[in-house]
């Protein structure tokens, strides 16, 4: 008790100033005091703490750790069939030259394959064996990973553009 009384007016004024300033800051950030019966979200606090102190490293989870999943059934069944016009192309999977008039499957990247060859490959993974152009998959986790990766790349570009506009 005795100590509380010993706070001198000038110090109290400084403290009051701090509190008022912080309140303004909280208001600006859209933060609110906990209401009666409300609990802090400790999991969220922990996550923020980990991010702030660098324990969360984007590089660690930045790569899909295994072979990407098979192409989606829909994407595979929608691959167009093309009739071969010239005799100088071959299938990159079995390396056999296409016969003129033969019907082959074409990927969106315009690479052509025997139906049997490309379908076997797309049952394993979703990309063109020649150029790695990706087809959609039926795997929700992989699709979420791809979206997240795209967003991160976009953010990096935005920050770079902002930086360049400020310093050039």
């Amino acid at each position: 008790m005795g100590e509380a009384v010993s706070v001198q007016p000038i110090q109290f004024g400084f403290l009051r100033h701090c509190i008022v300033t912080m309140a303004g800051y909280f208001e600006e950030m859209g933060w609110q005091e906990l209401q009666e019966g409300q609990q802090a979200n400790h999991l969220l606090d922990m996550a923020r703490f980990l991010i702030d102190f660098g324990f969360y490293n984007e590089d660690i989870i930045g790569e899909w750790p295994r072979l990407p999943p098979p192409a989606s059934r829909e994407a595979v069944s929608n691959l167009p069939e093309i009739r071969i016009e010239t005799g100088d192309k071959s299938c990159p999977i079995c390396l056999k030259t296409f016969n003129v008039g033969e019907k082959v499957k074409e990927m969106p990247c315009h690479h052509q394959f025997h139906a049997k060859c490309i379908l076997t490959w797309l049952e394993k993974t979703n990309s063109c064996p020649f150029c790695r152009h990706e087809l959609p998959t039926d795997d929700d986790a992989y699709e979420a990973y791809k979206k997240d990766k795209k967003r991160k790349e976009q953010r990096k570009e935005d920050i770079e553009a902002l930086h360049n506009s400020m310093f050039s």
């Binding site: 295994r66 072979l67 990159p92 999977i93 390396l95 060859c117 490959w121 990309s127 064996p129 790695r132």
Partner: peptide
């Protein structure tokens, strides 16, 4: 390993 593609020889 996981970056194998069928068109590689």
């Amino acid at each position: 390993k996981d970056q194998w593609a069928a068109a590689l020889t």
